[in-house]
């Protein structure tokens, strides 16, 4: 399993325990996300602070994970490292997701958008 999950306040925090979400990892990641978020809070926060590298397969898998949640739930991203942040900005996916510098920021009630 590439993910661990906890429920904090009103959100489920899913932590990625891998340094790379790349082509070798993307399908596993997508399946693990489906398992972890099958049911649960409306808001899911994906903690990416251990992830140093993501490629287009990994980016596609995160988009797929958000689609799996459906319209009534939402996937926010926290702890983007520099290379992950760059890939999100280059592809303009930074406009699609709520991005937080740290997991703490994502959990701060003042930062939560409704």
């Amino acid at each position: 399993m590439s993910l661990t999950s906890t429920v904090a306040d009103d959100a489920q925090v899913v932590t990625v325990n891998a340094q790379r979400i790349d082509a070798a990892m993307a399908i596993q990641f997508k399946e693990d996300m489906r398992t972890e978020t099958d049911a649960g809070p409306q808001r899911v926060i994906l903690d990416l602070s251990s992830v140093e590298f993501i490629d287009s397969s990994g980016l596609g898998a995160i988009v797929a994970a958000m689609k799996q949640l459906g319209k009534d739930r939402r996937l926010d991203l926290a702890g983007l490292t520099p290379m992950v942040d760059k890939v999100f900005r280059l592809t303009r996916m930074d406009t699609v997701f709520n991005l937080f510098d740290t997991l703490q920021d994502a959990l701060d009630p003042e930062h939560v958008e409704h």
Partner: peptide, 27 residues
């Protein structure tokens, strides 16, 4: 040419691939 996305792009229209050559050409 990747699909242009922004905050208003409907969930179902978000691309799950096709970023590869876009990234190569950007970088």
């Amino acid at each position: 040419n990747t699909v242009k996305v922004d905050a208003d792009t409907p969930l179902e229209d978000l691309p799950e691939g096709g970023f590869g050559w876009f990234l190569i050409r950007e970088l």
